[in-house]
Amino acid sequence: MKIIVHNDKCQGHARCWAMAPHIFDLDDEGYIKPGDIEVAEADEKLAWKGAKSCPERALEIEK
C-alpha cells in the first residue's frame, strides 16, 4: 500500500502524525514532509487510519 501525499493541501493539523508518528513524518513547522509513503504490510491498518484522519484530505490511499 502506498500513500500519496498532496503537500499543497497539508495545513499541519498533524492528525496523521498523532495516529502514527513513525509513518507520517512532519517537518519543523509541523507539516507533512514531501514524498509518497510506502507502507509496510504490518503498518497498513494504522496508515489507513492516519490517512483517513486528515481534515484537509491531503493523504490519498493507493492500494
Partner: peptide, 12 residues
C-alpha cells in the same frame, strides 16, 4: 508569518 510562527507551536 506562518512559517515564522509555526515552529513555536508545532506538535513537537
Amino acid at each position: 508569518f506562518r512559517s515564522l510562527l509555526n515552529p513555536l507551536l508545532s506538535p513537537k
